[in-house]
């Protein structure tokens, strides 16, 4: 998946902090991420970009919009 934008569905401060942290972890528009697996009864997605493997819950994964 190539990320188009990183955006939270709500404007709550905690959601904004979440988006900020996704950027700090190196995610940004234009970057290609590979979905490795869905674990924990389908609620956690493991993605890979560069040398980084990241586990995201549903709320966090929903912030990544791409094609």
């Amino acid at each position: 998946m190539i990320i188009d934008k990183i955006e939270s569905l709500t404007n709550e401060p905690s959601a904004q902090e979440m988006v900020q942290r996704l950027y700090e972890l190196g995610l940004r528009p234009g970057i290609q991420v590979k979905i490795i697996t869905r674990i924990s009864f389908g609620t956690v997605t493991v993605i890979e970009y560069g040398h980084t493997r990241l586990a995201l819950n549903e709320q966090e994964m929903a912030c990544l919009h791409g094609h």
């Binding site: 972890l25 493997r53 586990a55 995201l56 819950n57 966090e60």
Partner: peptide
């Protein structure tokens, strides 16, 4: 408090 906790966990090599 919050309904859902933060995960966002780096999985090291």
């Amino acid at each position: 408090g919050e309904k859902q906790s933060r995960l966002m966990m780096e999985l090291p090599l």
